[in-house]
Amino acid sequence: MTVMKKAVETPLTETAFLILLAMYRPNHGYGVMQFVEEKTEGRVVFGPGTLYGAINNLFKKGLIEKYPTDPSERRQDYVITPLGKSHVQSELKRMQEVVAIAEGIVRSGEHD
């Protein structure tokens, strides 16, 4: 039996997933921090070291790219790449599967 290797199969960490979502429009570090805090109602707060490391990591892996900014603004914006979007989509599908399984079990209180 041959196993087909999917292009995207590793689950994203919550940190990476949220950063990618924040970068569906060009965004910078502080903007990502605010977006995540607001959307998760303060449940997730990124420390600067964690956010910096995660952004660099996503950039190195080609999931986000630099977005040209006005040089007077002294900040670096990033935007999600098509590869990043495909990662988000497979992560979303994976999460939906898990949620569907969990809802079925939790609602009925037991397995089929």
């Binding site: 910078h28 570090g29 502080y30 921090m33 420390g47 600067p48 070291g49 956010l51 910096y52 952004i55 002294r74 900040r75 670096q76």
Partner: peptide, 25 residues
């Protein structure tokens, strides 16, 4: 808060510092 940065190259450190600035730190 205090961060240990002696392992970072000068270029990496400066990049981190500008990231902190834009994060209002």
């Amino acid at each position: 808060a205090v961060d240990y940065v002696a392992n970072k190259s000068l270029e990496h450190l400066q990049d981190y510092e500008s990231f902190l600035e834009e994060s209002k730190i």
